[in-house]
């Protein structure tokens, strides 16, 4: 197969002369648009319907941040500061007290007014127990009336987690794992 091909220029084709004289080119276009007149429409009536049969927000959507918690309600964050370091826009701020294993998370804010939704923080998080410690949620309607409203505190981020679909999936998964563990234990006891 040749690497390069010449495009076909269909201009000045003498055969087409009569075709043009009787407006056939225009007719072809008109027929196409008329056909569309009664076809099924693809508009999604956004504020009234937020998902359709063809589309719903995918799980990977990089929406609002959330701080995930385990099934006992404890934050998974281990205060390693990886997300803070990787963030190109410096929108994550973390403060903790104590040292070593005794660390307590005092402050964890995400400033959405700077965030460019690159998703690097989610990737950088080293925690991996079912979910990462900081996760993207499917929430995308983020407009607020004041700039202060764009700064999400630790509590807000935790609330986002419980509002999201992901938390439900994660909790279910955790429960299943627990059940399996219990089964395994029973089996080992039996044997």
């Amino acid at each position: 197969m040749e690497d390069y091909i010449k495009v076909k220029r269909e201009v000045g084709n003498r055969k087409d002369e009569m075709w043009y004289a009787f407006l056939q080119d225009l007719k072809a276009g008109l027929c196409l648009t008329l056909g569309y007149l009664f076809k099924k429409k693809i508009t999604m009536q956004y504020p009234y319907e937020k998902s359709t049969a063809e589309w719903s927000i995918p799980l990977r959507w990089r929406g609002l941040h959330a701080l995930s918690a385990d099934e006992n309600g404890r934050l998974k964050c281990i205060m390693c500061l990886q997300c803070m370091k990787i963030c190109p826009d410096h929108c994550i701020k973390i403060r903790f007290s104590g040292a070593g294993k005794e660390r307590v998370l005092e402050e964890f804010t995400v400033d959405l007014s700077r965030c460019s939704a690159c998703g690097l923080c989610f990737e950088a998080c080293p925690v991996n127990s079912i979910t990462k410690a900081i996760v993207p949620t499917e929430k995308y309607e983020l407009s607020v009336y004041s700039r202060e409203g764009l700064v999400y505190k630790k509590e807000d981020l935790l609330k986002n987690w419980y509002d999201s679909v992901k938390s439900r999936i994660a909790l279910e998964k955790a429960e299943n794992m627990k059940k399996e563990e219990v089964k395994k234990e029973e089996k080992s006891v039996e044997s």
Partner: peptide, 13 residues
């Protein structure tokens, strides 16, 4: 409306 329908939209709704 016609514009919308031709363009697979709804037009004013």
């Amino acid at each position: 409306k016609v514009a919308g329908w031709i363009q697979v939209r709804f037009g004013p709704m």
